[in-house]
Amino acid sequence: MTDTIGITALIPPELIYACGHRPLDVNNVVPESSLSPRSKLCAWTALWRELILTGSLDIDSLVVVAGGDCHNALVDGQKVALSGLPTHYFFYPFDTNLRYLYSQLESLEGFLGGIKDQEMFKYICGLKKKGLALEKQRVNDNARASDVFSALICFSDMQSNPYEFENLIDNIPHTEVEYSSRIALIGVPPIYPDFHKVAEEFGLHIVYDELPYEFIRLGGNDLQGLAKSYKNYSFAGPINNRINFINNELQKRRVDGVIHYTQFACHHTLEDEIFRDYLDYPFLTVQGDLPGPTPEQLKLRLEAFSEMLEIMA
């Protein structure tokens, strides 16, 4: 029987598909939500928790990323577990330990009932190659960042249907992009669904989305392969590894400036000072809270950043 498995952060979707189930990234429905969550710190976790507890999200079980994500997710995941939904806790190793991650993947495989379709590993790998090609397209100014982002952000679960998803990514239009500055967007993804479009209106071409890029660059064809790749999931490891990785990507993509999106009450906000010290680029920090259209105050910041970069150039 195919179950829908909710995931709270990056869990190898190829493993869930190979076990005969479909993943549903519970974060991907948050930006369109109009719920007002009670007992809220970070809106991302509070909203997926509320959506699950109110039955608005139809999932059969939940995999909580409890190590390598945040304590908000861990607590909200337990609230969901207390409601009776089968819940599994997955821990990324902070020290990139291969054996530890392999054991976590084994345990997850057990929770999912074991691998049933080995071929799904290869199929998902093929999709991720298409994702990387899309990424190259926007870096080479041949695709709008808003179109590419809307596809890449869904690589965490392939919209629970990889075959239909493949059709969607095959139809991302090739468009020659005009812009004034090339931007890297680091941190958690913005909770505002129109953020990339708004940035485009101000001439900012986002050529790097930190977290969605993790979704397409990591993969594997068996548990060992997954462990070798996902141990490098930059969000879960030491920040100096992440800084080195980001710096390398920024150079490759020839960015003019960095936007750090932070979420209200998210511990990643504390990383802002570190990034400002170690990423040698013009730097803008923005913060969001509840989902909805990008607020005017945030638009002002983007516009001013765009003006500043243009004048500096």
Binding site: R276, D277, Y278, L279, D280, Y281, P282, M308, I311, M312
Partner: peptide, 15 residues
């Protein structure tokens, strides 16, 4: 006019 300091910012941040 140029309002912002138009220098190489690479020189300004610590490594």
């Amino acid at each position: 006019s140029i309002p912002f300091k138009n220098t190489d910012i690479l020189e300004q941040n610590p490594r």
